[in-house]
Amino acid sequence: MPKTTKMPMAVLLALTLGPAIAIGATLWFVAAAIPECSVNETERLPSPDGQFDLVIFSRDCGDTDQNTQAALVPPGEDVPFDAASFYSVGAGADPDPRWLSATAIEITVPPKATIYRNDATVAGVSVTYKPAT
Rank of each mutant, 00 (worst) to 15 (best):
A123G: 01
L15Q: 03
A113V: 13
D63H: 12
A20M: 15
P19R: 11
N67Y: 07
V109T: 15
G62K: 08
D78V: 00
S47E: 07
G76K: 03
N40M: 11
C37Q: 09
T5P: 00
A83W: 09
N67H: 05
A70E: 02
P2G: 04
F52N: 08
V127T: 01
A14E: 09
P2R: 08
W99H: 12
P111T: 12
R59W: 11
P2L: 07
S47V: 06
I21E: 00
S101H: 11
D78H: 02
A71M: 07
N40R: 13
T133G: 15
N40H: 14
A102C: 08
P35F: 15
A22S: 06
L13Q: 01
P111C: 04
P2T: 02
F52W: 15
P75D: 01
V73E: 02
K130H: 05
T68Q: 09
V30M: 05
N40C: 00
A84F: 13
A71I: 08
K3T: 07
G18N: 03
V73Q: 05
V89H: 03
P46M: 12
D82Q: 04
E36L: 10
K112R: 15
Q66K: 13
L54S: 05
D60A: 01
T121H: 11
L45M: 12
V125A: 00
A32C: 08
K3A: 05
S88E: 14
K3W: 06
P75Y: 00
V11I: 15
M9P: 06
P19Q: 03
Y129M: 03
T108M: 09
D60E: 13
M7Q: 14
F57L: 04
K130D: 01
A31R: 06
L100R: 15
Y129T: 00
E106L: 13
N118K: 11
R59N: 11
P110K: 12
Q66V: 04
N67P: 07
A83M: 02
I115K: 04
L27T: 04
G90S: 12
V39M: 14
V39C: 10
G90W: 12
T26R: 06
